[in-house]
């Protein structure tokens, strides 16, 4: 068995509101291997953020509830740990950076205070030592003039600098797992690639595992070792990155790959998948992707497919991968 830092099994998280039970995370299982990057990809509203927030134990409560499954982090089930233990893990064992660097830092505290806070919270070190380490982190994420930035407040920094500060904060206690929820979506294209290569460099340097969430297959291609493709709360395809790009099997995956904007070329007409992700309160009865799928049949509209192994290490949730498809 390989060395998995995180094992998510059959995770189900639902919202409960006037529409009843809404499955935002629907029987999701995956592993994050030590020192590797797992990519989670899917359009907006597919449940990527909720999946990662479940891992952190930070999904919206009390509207949302984990209704099944387990999240084993270093062998301990995050869904069963008491709050006291979760507080110790967050920021130390696993850390997270978010999509919106503009709003994710506390506007009234300096960058230095915010980084030192994490260090002081989890490690019993003096103020001076915490400050020294915070400064070291700021330098490590490639921020020029660490002393100046240390004393700055978030509003004085650009989006890219803020995201670097977020990364410095997240890595300040040397976490085993770094969760990045669309870390570059809100940034300019040039800054995007800087941040991505920063994450890659730090991953190599510190040996942390990464869970990288994005809606951009291009980012996945560049960063991930393995990929899960999510659609409407479910995993629809799961494979090693190279395998996924060589043999995209689910029609949704193919659609996402075709919609990668070509580099260095004026985009004339992007190949986008028609339609949009269904709302959780109006999920189709059969396969969740059927209404948008070019290959959908009567069976797809009536029945939900299970996820099956298409080839070694490659799983797909589609009737086309199941025996008997040709006959239809």
């Amino acid at each position: 068995m390989s060395d998995n830092i995180l094992q998510v099994r059959d995770l189900c998280m639902s919202f409960f509101n006037k529409h009843g039970e809404l499955p935002a995370v629907n029987h999701v299982s995956f592993d994050v291997e030590r020192g590797k990057t797992l990519g989670i990809v899917g359009e907006s509203g597919c449940g990527k953020s909720m999946t990662s927030l479940c891992v952190m134990g930070l999904y919206p409560q009390p509207q949302g509830k984990i209704v099944g499954g387990s999240i084993l982090f270093q062998g301990r089930d995050m869904t069963k740990l008491p709050p006291r233990e979760l507080h110790k893990i967050r920021g130390k064992g696993m850390a997270m950076i978010f999509q919106e660097p503009m709003t994710s830092l506390n506007p009234v505290l300096t960058i230095g205070d915010q980084i030192m806070e994490t260090i002081r919270l989890h490690e019993h070190v003096s103020r001076q030592e915490a400050k020294r380490r915070a400064m070291e982190m700021i330098a490590m994420v490639g921020i020029p003039m660490p002393e100046k930035i240390f004393a700055s407040c978030p509003h004085q920094l650009s989006g890219g600098m803020r995201q670097r500060a977020m990364i410095a904060m997240a890595l300040s206690c040397d976490p085993e797992l770094l969760i990045c929820d669309e870390p570059t979506t809100a940034l300019d294209v040039t800054v995007q690639s800087q941040i991505l290569s920063l994450i890659n460099r730090l991953k190599a340097q510190t040996g942390t595992s990464v869970m990288l969430i994005t809606h951009d297959m291009g980012v996945i291609n560049e960063m991930a070792d393995t990929v899960i493709v999510m659609y409407a709360g479910q995993i629809v395809e799961q494979a090693a990155t190279a395998d996924l790009f060589a043999h995209p099997t689910h029609p949704y995956t193919s659609g996402l790959i075709q919609s990668i904007p070509p580099l260095n070329r004026e985009v004339e007409e992007l190949n986008v998948i028609p339609g949009s992700v269904p709302m959780l309160y109006e999920l189709p009865k059969g396969c969740l992707f059927a209404p948008r799928c070019p290959y959908a049949t009567a069976r797809c509209a009536a029945e939900r497919p299970d996820i099956v192994t298409a080839s070694e290490g490659h799983q797909v949730r589609c009737f086309r991968c199941m025996p008997g498809w040709e006959g239809q």
Partner: peptide, 14 residues
């Protein structure tokens, strides 16, 4: 409801 509160929780502040 602000994002930075979630960031604080993610750091282990409670």
């Amino acid at each position: 409801k602000q994002d930075y509160m979630r960031t604080a929780s993610a750091k282990g502040v409670h």
